[in-house]
Write a protein that binds this DNA or RNA. Structure first.
Lengths: 341, 341
DNA sequence: CTGTTAGCGCCTTCAT
DNA sequence: ATGAAGGCGCTAACAG
C-alpha cells in the first residue's frame, strides 16, 4: 500500500453530504445536530481522519505550538524540566517543538531560534544559553512571549521561573554552619549566570549572618562542567587553608567534586564534608548519602507552562514581567560531619 | 508595541516590486538575477522576514518535522538520545516535535501519537512504550516511517536502532567470569521488552559458554524502576544462595541496586561485586568506581536520524526493515572483585 | 442549525 | 528570468 494521503474535510463531506463549515463547527465546538455529529464521527472514524494542524494554524494565525530552546551544555535537570513542561502544555492542547544550538556553526544562517520562529511558535521557553541572548531579546521585543527557565537576564522582556536560588544558598549555608564548620569552601560556578550568583550570595549571606567569614580563595568559580568542578575541588583540597566542608552549587560541579574526593581517597562526611546540588539519584548512591539541595522540578515545569499559557492568551505586550521563585528542598544525607563537642 | 504580524511575501513584494513567484524561487533555490537577490535579501532583512513553515508545509504536503514519542517512564539515557537526534535532524533542516503520554487519561480523545500525526509529522521516532504499540503499528502500516530506539517489536513495520544488547550482555558475563565468580545474579528487568531479553540472553550465554550455570532464583525480573532494582537486590542479598556478583541490566535497576548495597552496609567490590548499566557519571561517583556497560549515545542518535531521513526521502512502503545494532563499551572500574588465587 | 464564500502564506504549473 | 493564477486544508464571517 502506497503512502496514503491523509483524509480531509472534503472526504468527510463526500460521505456525509454536510458542508465544510458544519464539519469545521463539529471540530471546533459549534452547534451541530446530534444526528449530524454521529455522521461525522462515523465518517472520521472510517477515514481515520485527523484535523490538519498546519492548515488550521495557517488559517487561525496561531499554531498552538511552543518552542523550547535548549543550550549546548545541558544536564539531566534541564531535560526533566522540558519533559514536565511538555506534559503540562499538552494538557492545554499545546505542542512542544524542541531546538538546540548544539553543533551549530556560527555562520549557519538559521539558528535554533529562527527555526522555531519560522514554525510560527506561539511562545518560547528558553533554558540558559548566553549565546542566544541577543536573538532572544529581539524576539521578545517583537511581541512573542518568552519564558526563561532557571535563569533571567536584566532587561530581557521575559518572565522567568526557577528555583529560589538565594534561599537555596542560604539553606545550605545554614546547614553547614549548624554542623559547626568554620573553614568553608564553595564551588560557585559561572558568575555571569544569575542563577549561580544568587546561590553564592544566599550562601555567603548565611555564613556572615552566623558570624562566619569566607575568604576569596575559598570561593571557586569557573564553567559549569564536571571538569571544572573536579579541578576546583582538587585545588581546594590542596589549599593551604583547606576547608572542612564544601558546597557544589550545581549538578555538574557536584559530580566533579565527588570524583575529586574519591580520587583523593578521602572519606565523604569524615575527612571532608560536602553538600551537592540537584541529583536526587546521586545523593542516594554515594556512600554515605550525599546531602543535596533538590529542585522542585515538576513545580517549575508547571509554573512555566502556566505562565506561558497565560501570556499567549493575553496576546499583547505585558507591562511587566514576573519572576517566579520556587523553594527547593534540602535532602539531608550524612555527608556533612558534625564538628560540635 | 502590539504583537507585530509576521511579514509575508506580500511585504517583500511591496518593497521590491518583484512577483511572489520570484520571491518563492529565491527561497527555494531557483534562478533569480543577482540584482534581484540583493533586493530580496535587503527587504527580508529589514522586515526580519522568515518563511512561514506552516504555510509552506500545507502547500508542499510535507512538514519537515519528525515526532518523538516518549514513554511514561524515561531515564536520562533516553533524553540524551532525543537531544542527539534533534541535533542531527536539525542539520538536515528537520525539526523535532516532542510528545509524551505521561499523565494521559486513557479516555483522552487525543493521545500523544494523534497529536503528532495531526501536526503532519513526516515520521515518528519512538522510545519504548508498550501502551503505544497498537496505535504505532497502525500508523506504521498507513505508510508513515517509524523508527524505534532502544527496542523493537516483532511484526512492527519499523526500523530500529539500539545498542547491541546481546553482545553487551555477553561482554559483561565474560568480564564477570574472568574474575572467577561462580555465584552470579542478574537483575534482568522487564522480560516483555526485547532489549531486556537480549541483554539477559547474551549474559547467560557467556556464563554457560564458560561452564557456569545460573539458577532461576538468581535471575530477577520486574519493572524497570529504581524500586524494583532495590527490592530485587535486597532479595538476592538475603538469599540462601547469595551471589558474589550481580549484573544490573538497566540504568534504573543499577541505581536501585547501588542503594540496596549501600543500605546493607556492604562494600562494593569487596563484600559484593557488581556491574551496572548506562550511567557514566554514576560509575565515576561511586566508591570504588562502578564497572558499567556504557551505551554509544551519540552513535545511536546519529543512526536513528539518518535512518529516518532516508525513509522520508524514499517516500514509499519499504519491503524490509533494518535493525541496527551498535556495540557498547565496558567501562571497567573496581566494583568487580577478583576471586582468583 | 447549516451552507456559501473568501482567504491565511506559500509553492507550482504554465505562460511570457 | 519573471509573472499570473490557482489551490493546499481549514476557519470565520455572513446569510439563510
Amino acid at each position: 500500500m502506497a503512502t496514503r494521503n491523509a483524509a480531509t474535510y472534503k472526504d468527510i463531506q463526500r460521505i456525509t453530504g454536510l458542508s465544510l463549515a458544519t464539519i469545521s463547527k463539529f471540530y471546533n465546538g459549534g452547534n451541530v445536530l446530534a444526528a449530524n455529529r454521529g455522521l461525522i464521527e462515523a465518517a472520521a472514524e472510517s477515514l481515520s481522519y485527523r484535523v490538519n494542524a498546519n492548515a488550521s494554524s495557517l488559517r487561525r494565525g496561531t499554531s498552538g505550538t511552543v518552542g523550547v530552546l535548549l543550550p549546548t551544555l545541558l544536564n539531566a535537570f534541564h531535560l526533566l524540566v522540558i519533559v514536565g513542561v511538555e506534559k503540562h502544555l499538552r494538557e492545554q492542547g499545546i505542542s512542544v517543538l524542541v531546538s538546540s544550538n548544539e553543533g551549530e556553526s556560527a555562520r549557519g544562517a538559521s539558528n535554533a531560534l529562527d527555526v522555531l520562529l519560522g514554525r510560527q511558535v506561539d511562545g518560547i521557553i528558553a533554558v540558559p544559553a548566553a549565546s542566544d541572548l541577543d536573538a532572544l531579546a529581539r524576539a521578545a521585543e517583537s511581541g512573542i512571549p518568552v519564558v526563561t527557565i532557571d535563569w533571567w537576564e536584566e532587561g530581557l522582556h521575559a518572565d522567568s521561573v526557577s528555583l529560589d536560588n538565594v534561599d537555596a544558598g542560604w539553606v545550605v549555608g545554614q546547614h553547614i554552619v549548624d554542623h559547626g564548620h568554620q573553614q568553608i569552601g564553595i564551588l560557585a560556578g559561572d558568575q555571569s549566570i544569575s542563577t549561580m550568583r544568587e546561590r553564592r550570595d544566599g550562601f555567603i549571606r548565611a555564613l556572615t549572618h552566623n558570624g562566619r567569614t569566607i575568604t576569596d580563595d575559598l570561593i571557586m568559580t569557573g564553567p559549569l562542567t564536571v571538569d571544572s568542578g573536579y579541578s576546583n575541588t582538587m585545588q581546594l583540597l590542596a589549599s593551604h587553608s583547606r576547608p572542612t566542608v564544601l558546597f557544589a552549587a550545581n549538578y555538574d560541579l557536584t559530580v566533579g567534586a565527588l570524583i575529586a574526593i574519591n580520587e583523593s581517597g578521602l572519606r565523604l562526611g569524615a575527612d571532608i564534608s560536602m553538600v551537592g546540588f540537584d541529583s536526587v539519584e546521586l545523593s542516594r548512591v554515594t556512600r554515605p548519602n550525599l546531602t543535596i539541595l533538590a529542585q522542585p522540578i515538576d513545580a517549575i515545569a508547571e509554573v512555566a507552562a502556566r505562565t506561558m499559557k497565560t501570556r499567549i492568551e493575553e496576546n499583547g505586550q505585558p507591562s511587566s514581567f514576573t519572576k517566579e521563585r520556587i523553594p527547593g528542598t534540602l535532602i539531608v544525607g550524612a555527608s556533612v560531619a558534625s564538628l560540635h563537642e
